[in-house]
Amino acid sequence: MRSAFSTKEEKNMKSRLVDRLLLPVHVDTVEQLGPRLRRVILTGSALAGVTWHPGQHVRLQVAPAPPALDWIVGTLRTYSIWDFDDQAMELIVFDHGEGPGAGWARTARPGDELMLLKPQGNLAVQSEARYHLFAGDETAQVSYGPMLRALPDDAQVFARVEVDSPAERIDLTPKQRQAARPGWNVDWTYRQGRSAASSQSLVEAVRSLPLPDEPGIAYLAGEARTIQLIRRHLVEERNWPRRHVRTKPFWTPGRKGLD
């Protein structure tokens, strides 16, 4: 039988570890942007001095977890960061499926308190690239927006993002930026109820792009099987070196933990 002392020591140890790993924040703003899109702004003094580069994500403690699963940090879910300025972190959450993450996204309210890990991830634009190619689904939009904003004014960009309907589209190219950046070729395709997994329509949208003969840098994010198909097209049909294709699988049917 465990003594009260050991239980107290265990709690103190966990508290010290959590304080080192997780940052306390609270929900400042919640706004519905579309049928399955919510804008959530997290604020807190613990965010002061935290660094972030466009394309990174943050992991939120959305619920406790049984000790056997995760004794320290609880149930974490990953969300790409749309913007981050000093003590305000803006997320655009795509609500899909069931589970703790979906439950948090649907019920988050201003004033709610939660914990998060510092921004992480290596998805980032390569400024020295001859041109940039972005392709992905709904789950990739939030990463791509900040990455596109980070590119220099003279960057050449090709992008195809597939969502189910126009209501689930995030404007990645505000009019004032698009007018100043004539080298952008950015558009959306719509599945209209078809599965996002192994999306041939997104592959065809990329295949039809008038890319220059020489390879640029590709950023492929979203459903894992679709990413594989697009990478195969670039490597086998357009003869791109594999090192020029950066991939970030966020999800695939029947599997967890791809973030």
Rank of each mutant, 00 (worst) to 15 (best):
D112S: 12
T226N: 12
D154Y: 01
P110T: 08
W184H: 07
T247W: 01
V73Y: 03
V186I: 13
V25D: 03
D19S: 15
P110C: 04
G101C: 09
V25K: 03
I217A: 10
M147W: 04
M13I: 10
Q87H: 07
E90I: 04
W71S: 13
F158R: 12
G44L: 08
V163C: 04
G103F: 04
W82D: 11
L220R: 08
L42V: 06
I72D: 14
L258S: 14
L172Q: 12
A159T: 13
R255L: 05
A68I: 07
H57W: 07
K14V: 15
S201P: 01
D28F: 04
R177P: 01
P54Q: 01
E162R: 12
W184G: 06
L116M: 09
A4L: 14
P249M: 06
R207Y: 11
D19N: 15
Q32P: 02
R238T: 08
T7S: 07
S201A: 12
L47H: 00
G74S: 06
R20C: 07
L21P: 04
T247R: 07
L123A: 04
T247F: 05
S201N: 13
Q141R: 01
L209C: 09
E237T: 13
M1F: 08
R39N: 14
L23K: 13
R177Y: 02
E214I: 11
I227T: 02
F250I: 13
P215K: 00
F5V: 14
L148A: 07
H26S: 09
R106L: 14
